[in-house]
Nucleic acid binder design. Structure first.
Length: 443
RNA sequence: GACCCCAUUGUGUAGUGGUUAGCACCCCACCCUUUCAAGGUGGUAGCACGGGUUCGAAUCCCGUUGGGGUCGCCA
């Protein structure tokens, strides 16, 4: 009988931490690899933190990453699984029963209005699937609170009770919990249950080398959701923090990770979060998307940036996106690069104007305008030929025309290839923008 | 401070007693080129240190140093 049951048990704090996302990912990978069950449990015992909005963020994050759960609350308000409830706030009866049991067995006692667990004074060995045998001398350990004065149960209690009640077989969690594990083992034993196996995964460190926290840039998954990252890229990157395929390959489909994922191969050392590498990886994924795949993403990015995509002729957005996608690494950048194609007014960068719309540039634009006005053909290759012959006639390089034209039509000195840009903009708009630039910047 | 974990270029990793220590990101150079990217080629940079074990250690053991984590009526 296959009995792997793992869980992701986040606390609804209003955001999903990348470390949490990676923990969820590893749990999910292990569940899928073993054909086991992935449970989502919401640890909302701290009433101050509990809100529907905060839970929503967790759902959104997991769904965005493609991490589906077999048991737990669902975004539509329904519940899947018969080992619930999956909100700790709805499980107080279960905790009360556990508390009473511990009290009856004299494994817990009241003190100052709270209830403390009677920690066994002995050596406790954690047999961790990743860290190996880790010994703790608990002979001097203090008893600790498992129910607050206000009657609410504390993490150490509820976490263990729920893992027991829900039949969790493996607890895969951050290494910051390793030191808590003797407590958890002791509670499980006092309750007469069989504790799950533990697997403590290394922490994700921030740029300066300490545990990534809420305040760190890039710590929240929403930054990637909103920043135009592709979920498959973020997921791929997260796989690499503490785990690898071991064959000099870093870009791989999730199915492959799922097939190859083993707890024993997870590292024991912490990993620093490298935003540059994630950015590179995202660009790599972005470029590998075919037109059919990238369009929905691009439309979403454009829409949420305030550019309705429906108002344009069919195919126009796609043309723009395909032109621009080779040059950008995120959806956010894609939007930036697409702007000149979607706005009436050209926004001029002052540095670009200064550099290329000087008297020489304006002269070049005048020559180009005259030449282009009666161009019979307006295609990318025709434009290219025209630019070249223009340069030849005037005994200069094609650059003389290219740069001022890019600035005049897009406002910037960098951008996609010029001829396709001019083609997509269309002759009318291009001529209009050339005239406009000449009027505005000729002095 | 006590306890626990960790240690291969700046970063992520491969490497499990014998390798010119491999790959990727970053950085640099060159090529390509209308800009910027992408792509291609090449380059800089690493086994923290000290003891052992061994014919032979990045690999095994011990210590030191360094980094991280935990010590809440937070989770």
């Amino acid at each position: 009988m296959n009995s792997v049951r793992v869980r992701f048990a986040p606390s609804p704090t209003g955001y999903l931490h990348v470390g949490g996302a990676r923990t969820a990912l590893f749990n999910w990978l292990y569940a899928r690899h073993t054909k086991g069950t992935f449970v989502l449990r919401i640890e909302d015992t701290d009433r101050a933190r509990n809100s529907a909005e905060a839970v929503r963020v967790i759902f959104d994050g997991l769904q965005w990453l493609g991490l589906d759960w077999d048991e737990g609350p669902l975004p539509d308000g329904s519940v899947r699984g018969d080992r619930g409830p999956y909100f700790q706030s709805e499980r107080s009866g279960i905790y009360d029963r556990a508390l009473r049991l511990l009290l009856d067995r004299n494994q817990a006692y009241e003190s100052d209005g709270a209830i403390r667990f009677r920690m066994p004074r002995k050596k406790i060995v954690v047999e961790d699937l990743i860290c190996g045998e880790v010994g703790f001398d608990c002979t001097l350990e203090q008893d600790f609170v498992i129910q607050r004065k206000d009657g609410s149960p504390v993490f150490h209690l509820v976490n263990v009770v729920d893992d027991l009640e829900m039949g969790i077989s493996h607890v895969i969690r951050g290494e910051d919990h390793l030191s808590n594990t003797p407590k958890h083992l002791a509670i499980a034993a006092a309750l007469g249950g069989t504790a799950p196996r533990y697997a403590h995964i290394p922490l994700i460190l921030n740029r300066s080398g300490s545990k990534m926290s809420k305040r760190d840039v890039g710590a929240s998954l929403t930054e990637y959701q909103d920043g135009g990252y592709l979920p498959q890229a973020v997921r791929n990157y997260l796989c690499l923090l503490g785990w690898s395929l071991r064959e000099n390959r870093e870009l791989f489909p999730i199915e492959e990770a799922l097939e190859r994922f083993e707890l024993g191969q997870i590292h024991r050392s912490n990993a620093r979060f490298d935003a540059d590498k994630l950015l590179w990886m995202n660009g790599s994924y972005l470029r590998s998307l075919n037109p059919h795949e990238i369009l929905p993403h691009a439309e979403r990015w454009l829409e949420s940036a305030g550019y309705p995509t429906g108002k344009w002729a069919p195919g126009y957005i796609q043309e723009v996106v395909l032109l621009v996608k080779e040059k950008v690494k995120t959806g956010k950048e894609l939007v930036e690069w697409a702007r000149p194609f979607l706005e009436e007014e050209v926004r001029f960068e002052s540095s670009a104007v200064k550099r290329f719309l000087n008297p020489d540039g304006i002269r070049a634009l005048r020559e180009l305008l005259a030449d282009l006005s009666d161009a019979p053909e307006y295609t990318s290759s025709a434009l290219e030929a025209r630019f070249h012959s223009l340069a030849q006639v005037h005994g200069t390089s094609v650059r003389t025309y290219v740069h001022p034209t890019r600035v005049a039509t897009t406002g910037r000195e960098v951008g996609p290839s010029l001829y396709p840009t001019l083609t997509i903009l269309g002759k009318d708009r291009v001529l209009q923008r050339l005239r406009r630039a000449i009027e505005t910047f000729a002095s």
